[in-house]
Design a protein around this nucleic acid. Structure first.
Lengths: 142, 142
DNA sequence: CTATTTGCAAATAATTTGCAGCTGG
DNA sequence: CCAGCTGCAAATTATTTGCAAATAG
C-alpha cells in the first residue's frame, strides 16, 4: 500500500504524497512532473505544481522512485526501482520498461569478468532506442 | 579535418562551426553548450551562446554529433557518433566513453535471438552509473 | 551577390525558492 | 502542539526565437 511505502521511507503520509506516488506507480508511462500534475489537478484542485516537483525530489532522495534519463523535454519518473532497462520510442515519446533476466545476467557476468579500476558501479541500464512501427500497437517481446 | 566534415555534411564551414566542432571533438568530457561557450569565449569574444545552441542543433540534425542523455542539468554532446557506451560518474559529473567490442557483440547477439514485434531498434547503449573511488585518478578497464 | 548564418535581446519552458499558512502524528 | 509540508508567486536556469547585420561560396 502506498501509505505504508511512505511511512517505511520515513516520510509523512500526506494526502498529496499518497496521491502522487500512487499515480506514478499506476502509470505505465514514466510521467513527467507536468503529466502528474495534469492528471491530478481535476481531482485535487488545491494541488500545486511546485508541490509535485518538490514531492518528486523527496521521493527520489528516499529511493521511492527514480529519475529517467531523457534527451530533452521534461524529466520523467519511474516507480520501478530495481535495475531494469528502458525502451525509448522516438516516434511516440513513450518510455517502456523492459526486463529480461537472461540479459541482466549476461551483462552482470561480463562486468564481473572485467577488471575495472577506480569505479564503484552502482547501476547498469540498457537504453534501447527505436521507433514503433505501428504507433497504435504495443511492442511485444518473445 | 573539421572543415571537411562540415562540408561533407552539407554545411557551410563558418568560423564558429569549425571552432565549436573542433572543441567537441577534442574535448574528452562531453561538454554542455555552456561549457563550449565558456571554453571558446576568450578566444572568440564575438561568439554568442545562442549561436552555440543553434550550431549544436544543426550538428545533431546532420549527425555530426549526438546528444547525451542526462538526469539533470544541461544537455551534453558527443562527437563520437558510432554506437558506444557511457560511464556516468555521479561524484565528478563526468561522462566517459566506454567501448568494448565483446560487450557490443554480446548485446547484439542477444537482440538478434529475441523476437521483438513492432519496434524498429535504432540504437542500444549501456549506461553505467557509478562513483570514482579516487576522484583525481582515471578509471581503468582491463 | 544572396541564401545562410550569426549576434543580440527578449521569450519560453522547466524547475526551484522563499515564505506564510496548513496539517499529520 | 509544532516540525515538516504545501501553495503561491516570483526567481532562476536552460534553451529558443525574431530580426537586422554579417559572411561563405
Amino acid at each position: 500500500m502506498v501509505k505504508e511505502k511512505l511511512v517505511d521511507a520515513g516520510l509523512k503520509a500526506t494526502h498529496q504524497r499518497i496521491v502522487i506516488l500512487d499515480m506514478i506507480i499506476c502509470s505505465k508511462n514514466h510521467p513527467s512532473a507536468e503529466a502528474i500534475f495534469d492528471a491530478l489537478k481535476d481531482h485535487y484542485p488545491s494541488l500545486s505544481l511546485a508541490t509535485v516537483y518538490s514531492t518528486l525530489e523527496t521521493f527520489v532522495n528516499n529511493k521511492l522512485i527514480n529519475k529517467v534519463l531523457v534527451k530533452d523535454g521534461a524529466m520523467r519518473y519511474d516507480a520501478h526501482t530495481d535495475s531494469h532497462n528502458h525502451i525509448y520510442c522516438t516516434n511516440t515519446n513513450e518510455i517502456i520498461d523492459f526486463e529480461d533476466h537472461e540479459l541482466q545476467q549476461l551483462i552482470t557476468d561480463f562486468f564481473l569478468k572485467k577488471n575495472i579500476e577506480n569505479l564503484d558501479i552502482k547501476d547498469i541500464t540498457l537504453h534501447i532506442q527505436g521507433e514503433k512501427i505501428n504507433k497504435r500497437k504495443q511492442i511485444k517481446i518473445n
